[in-house]
Design a protein around this nucleic acid. Sequence first.
RNA 1: GGGCUCGUGGUGCAGCCUGGUUAGCACACUGGACUGUCAAUCCAGAGGUCGCGGGUUCAAAUCCCGUCGAGCCCGCCA
Length: 594
Amino acid sequence: MGGWKRTHSCGALRAGDAGKTVTLMGWVFRRRDHGGLIFVDIRDREGITQCVFNPGDGAEAHAKVQGVRGEFVLAVRGAVAPRPAGTENVKIPTGAVEVLARELKVLNDCRPLPFQLDSEGDAEVDETLRLKYRYLDMRRAPVLRAFQVRDLLCRAVRDYLHEHGFLEVETPFLTRSTPVGARDFLVPSRLQPGSFYALPQSPQLFKQLLMVAGFERYFQIVRCFRDEDLRKDRQPEFTQIDIETSFLDRDDFLPIVEGLVAAIWRRVKGVELALPFPRLAYDEAMARFGSDKPDLRFGLELRDVSALFVGGEFQAFAQVVGGGGAVKALRIPGAGSMSRKDLDDLTAEAKQAGAKGLVWIKVTAEGLNSPVAKFLSAVQDRLLSLTGAATGDLVLLVGDAPAVAATVLGRLRIDLARRFKLIPVDRDVFAWVIDFPLVEWNAGEKRWDAVHHPFTAPRDEDLPLFESDPGKARAKAYDLVLNGQEAAGGSIRIHQQSVQERLFGLIGISKEEARARFGFLLEALEFGAPPMGGIAFGLDRLAASLAGQESIREVIAFPKTQKGTCPLTDAPAPVDARQLRDLGIRVVEGADPA
RNA sequence: GGGCUCGUGGUGCAGCCUGGUUAGCACACUGGACUGUCAAUCCAGAGGUCGCGGGUUCAAAUCCCGUCGAGCCCGCCA
């Protein structure tokens, strides 16, 4: 840089700096060439400053800047001057001043860009192209801002947890495959041919071992890997805030987590959250919202209207209720205007979600408008009062097993709330969902599966249910829900080896298999494991939410596409035959991935 | 594995439904003019396998089939 030193950032200069000689370094954001006078907006991470190239201030600099184009890297030296009256730019913080360029160094040139970085309109650049040139995409202020939010989030987490006695510990990425959960990413071992490491789906087992080690409070901001299909909120590698503590029961632990969330919101958004967060039992969340991660920013609660149909003339519902099922109702205010086609689509959606059918009722001034209106006349008044429906509203009914009816309407609740813009987007609503079932029946495999993971402790009083009625046993598990998304999930762990073995027995993992897969954990539990529990946040989702982004790709530096590829590096890619030989691996041509 | 949407100069879009001029517009790019602009302006210019393959037709960006890529969703994700 020829001995030049940057004296200020491009966001620093104000009216009070007039008269100073400064050196700015950055990229050419925009260039306005008036022939005799050339304006260059120079940009760095901190902002934009207008530089004026006037032959009278620096003839050589003015000559040089004629060849300068967008995104050239410049060093500009000159005097700060207040802008002539009437030419100030109120849109940028440095708009009161400009730099009268005396000297110019072109530190680097730049090819014509694959897409514009300075567009102010709503022209969206194709995302694959953005990712292929992510380093250019990231020069754009909104993209940078998302990463600054993520940085602030991480700092808030580290500061808060360190203040509360948590120790930051790293755990292995090369570990062993476990039988539960998502598909593992495998890494072949060269030194142990035929054996594989697995990348961790989460540091679950390690953090429990750290508790056995007596570290008492651990956290880690850690990458996790799951080889499953991608979504806008799911990447094959993602980041968790992983936390584990000893000697705390649920009600001691959750307030610590609430404090963490409050610290994050304070730091990133300057918002003071109301604590504690409300708690909903799983059963209640399902009954009222048809979801285990209800969006509580709006109402539209489900109602149970089973009683109206007992033995009634509407045979379909009468049979459902008679057979132990339920009829649930969802009222959407103002949705009575939906067309027949919209309602047909809605019915298709309900069926896709598992319902046998969907009953829709438009409430009009003349009465109920519905394909099954003739069956409803007897219960019309009670239906309207139970649901609170009024003229112009739409009421949806699903009769099925209680869980199915609730889930279907829960999905329609979200869909319709979005469609009719009933969701206030200007606030964040948190809630805990607690008392999850411990296990659920897997009809396909004819066995019980752990709902959370197999190290989750049952509520003490539910332990006897293992033998009598496992489906009724509730877990010491908790999810933190933010605006209808799962922000974090965790549990109090089983810390006694005998209980752990009983649970493995219940979910059909034999003693031998358990010993083979995580005997190391079972053994550790025999050496004085303390009571322990923890939680893990999805950091990317949290960051996306804080940055006001829909997709976590916006807060991941170099994310993958939906097919798991990286447009920038073209990963994944074939490797040399030599590398495969070292690993003892042969690629089967035409192999059909299941 | 399945459903829906999209693919047109470097970028963002129009044209496609209803096949038929030289595929149009804006930005970027190149050359020129211009001393107060800030999405500078004005003049001129260059730049297109209409994702790819096949079919229908006298004729395909346009209609049909297949395929590839991207996005959203379902399944999947303890």
